[in-house]
């Protein structure tokens, strides 16, 4: 009976399923080819020689110009930008997960003086665009002496996206049964231990969601790293590095394509390997 119950019926009525499936598969294949064409083009260009760009508009390169990658990695510093991006991403994931899970736990499960002020304070700021606060954030980092190093960038990257995570954690924790803490308290486990050993493991799906969303946020972020790295090109991230690359004195199309591929491949591989977690994690954002 199961095949009768799928939502495609809404559209196609009672045709024979195989025909529908074939039709839709073909359609989706075309859509997917269009969808990933930019990636195919990027990879193809990164393997072409500089003389080939105009002479050979097709997707299949004539050879494998690996030297494009060598240039991008060493001379365009994509290697060090890669490390910077990785450090910022790992650092901000740790900070964000710790700060927002604790905050979300207390806000989501307990009533205490000041709770509503804090909670609704966060909720009210969800919609404020990044551009709005970038100037004071930069000033604050300058004041702290962190305006042009990786610590400052990591800290600000963590702070910028945290609001939504706090709300997600609060929502998730509030749905867990009350008895859990009761049991822990009877067993003589302290408050902090209860959180760390009982509650946080239970919130694993939400932790995964937050980790993945923060990885995406940090790897994709542009305005903040652009501003923070203005005074110190050595700490640029991949996005900013490639942007600066574009604005330089000469244009190296194939080198740029190689640099773009370098900055795209890691997240794509990570995504394909951990696909299940990505999908489930992101689904958590609307379900939770």
């Amino acid at each position: 009976m199961r095949h009768l119950l799928n939502p495609m019926r809404w559209i196609f009525g009672d045709h024979r399923p195989t025909r529908q499936v074939a039709l839709i598969s073909t359609l989706l294949t075309v859509v997917c080819l269009i969808w990933i064409y930019p990636f195919l083009w990027m990879i193809s260009t990164s393997l072409k020689s500089n003389a080939e760009i105009f002479a050979n508009p097709g997707l299949i390169p004539r050879g494998f110009a690996i030297e494009n990658y060598q240039r991008a990695w060493t001379e365009a510093h994509m290697g060090s930008y890669f490390v910077n991006t990785l450090l910022v991403t790992v650092g901000s994931v740790i900070i964000v997960t710790l700060c927002t899970s604790t905050l979300g736990y207390v806000l989501g499960r307990f009533k205490f003086p000041g709770r509503n002020v804090i909670f609704f304070g966060f909720v009210a700021t969800v919609f404020i665009p990044q551009g709005f606060t970038i100037i004071p954030v930069f000033e604050l980092l300058t004041w702290l002496g962190l305006s042009s190093n990786l610590y400052g960038l990591t800290l600000a990257t963590s702070g910028h996206a945290m609001v939504i995570f706090v709300i997600l954690f609060a929502g998730y924790f509030s749905q867990l049964p009350k008895e859990l803490e009761e049991a822990a308290r009877v067993d003589g486990v302290s408050f902090l231990q209860t959180f760390w050993y009982v509650m946080l493991p239970l919130a694993r799906p939400m932790v995964v969601t937050v980790v993945i969303m923060q990885v995406l946020h940090s790897w994709n972020d542009f305005l903040l790293p652009l501003v923070v790295t203005l005074a110190n090109p050595a700490i640029r991230t991949l996005s900013v590095g490639l942007y600066a690359f574009k604005g330089e004195q000469f244009i190296d199309w194939t080198g740029m394509a190689a640099a773009a591929t370098i900055s795209v491949i890691p997240v794509v591989v990570l995504f394909i390997l951990l696909q299940r977690y990505f999908i489930n994690g992101l689904s958590g954002a609307v379900k939770g």
Partner: peptide
């Protein structure tokens, strides 16, 4: 395939 662009850096 459809999700792929989401994980890539937008400026890139």
């Amino acid at each position: 395939m459809v999700f792929l662009p989401v994980v890539t850096p937008v400026a890139v």
